[in-house]
Amino acid sequence: MGETLLDDLPALLNGLGNSLLVSAIGITVSVVLGIALGAARNAGVPVLSQAIAVYVNVFRCTPLLVQIFMLYFALPEIGIRLSPFQTSWIALALWGAAYHTEIFRAGFKAVPPAEILAARALGMPARRTFLDVTLPLGLRATIPAATTMAIGQFRSSSFMVVVGYQELTYVANGLVSQTFRVFEIFGMAALMYFLTCTLIGAASRGFETWLRVPGTRTAR
């Protein structure tokens, strides 16, 4: 900690780095899980489908903060001890995957049945049809919603302050309690969150443009 904001910048950037680290892991795991579980839900795999629905409901209908407390404070009682870092990415992954599952399920469901029928008529078995038709078409349609969720996950990494993980909010909070420069330091942290989210949004739009299929673009 120092006299000016410039002196605090390295610490804040370090906190941002930690936020990005748990978010990147949490988002990646949750997206992969979301695609797999969303596909299973969309295919209506018996038993598994119902189990996934229960999972989604539990994680969607309880506060993230409570989920973090459960992971960090309740699990040790049954002998599972997670570090703040592990708690952070696992919480983001499990909470996010519930939403991503619904996002991808909706995306797969929105793929026109005619395209799927054409694939089946060519002799493509169900799994091939999913990989070559449903998945690529469904993913394109879900990029905006999945991005919004990913941004939400990154912002929610600030909740990890409660388990003492050294992410951006934790670092900013510590600096404030030592320097009392509340406005500057929280302002800087907010700006860092804002810019990162803006960058994620821009990258997502770039990705969408890159994947855009010629001939399906609506007139500007």
Binding site: A118, A119, R120, G123, L137
Partner: peptide
């Protein structure tokens, strides 16, 4: 079933090409 479908070509009213 997939094997049988390999031997039966089908063309639909709405073309159903893979748009991507």
């Amino acid at each position: 079933n997939a094997k049988v479908r390999e031997h039966v070509g089908m063309v639909f009213q709405s073309y159903n090409l893979f748009p991507h």
